[in-house]
Simulated assay, not measured.
Amino acid sequence: MSRMNKTAAALLAVGAIGLAGVGCSEAEKAINKGGDTPCSEYTAQDADKKRTTVTKFLEQERGSDAQLDQNTVDLSIAAIDLMCGAQANPDTPIREADLTGALVPK
């Protein structure tokens, strides 16, 4: 491969990586299960993925045009963290997680 071809290939690779980074959050949101995410998957997510999951869940519940502020998302994350931590069944989707699951498996 000539030096010019190597340079062109490197530039194309850098450009592809840059384009992939731009749409990552939208791509993550598209494949994210939202409210159908089981507690076991949710608790293993990092903070950014939890935010994406909970935002999608809230949009599923309220409609995609819902106006969600940061407080609503933050409080929902805290509640779901608590509920999934108390769930007896780790396969329970976050939309169904509740504190009674700690006592009576669903």
Results as ranks from 00 to 15, higher is better:
3 R>Y: 08
85 G>L: 09
87 Q>G: 02
56 K>L: 11
68 L>A: 06
47 A>Y: 05
82 L>F: 10
37 T>E: 02
70 Q>G: 05
89 N>M: 06
50 K>H: 11
14 V>P: 02
44 A>F: 06
62 R>D: 13
73 V>F: 02
32 N>M: 07
84 C>V: 11
70 Q>N: 14
55 T>Q: 02
40 S>Q: 11
106 K>L: 07
105 P>S: 11
13 A>L: 15
40 S>I: 13
64 S>H: 14
37 T>R: 05
38 P>L: 10
70 Q>D: 15
85 G>I: 09
33 K>C: 00
64 S>L: 04
12 L>K: 11
6 K>W: 06
83 M>P: 00
53 T>N: 04
17 I>G: 05
81 D>F: 00
48 D>P: 00
77 I>H: 03
96 E>P: 00
75 L>A: 14
7 T>F: 13
30 A>E: 14
51 R>E: 06
25 S>F: 15
28 E>Q: 10
6 K>T: 09
47 A>F: 03
67 Q>Y: 03
96 E>R: 07
31 I>V: 13
78 A>K: 12
40 S>C: 03
37 T>G: 04
96 E>D: 15
18 G>W: 12
74 D>C: 10
46 D>E: 07
40 S>M: 13
101 G>D: 04
34 G>M: 06
36 D>N: 13
66 A>G: 09
73 V>A: 05
84 C>G: 10
61 E>Q: 12
17 I>D: 02
15 G>H: 02
44 A>I: 01
45 Q>A: 08
49 K>A: 02
34 G>C: 04
50 K>W: 13
86 A>S: 11
103 L>V: 14
42 Y>S: 02
104 V>S: 08
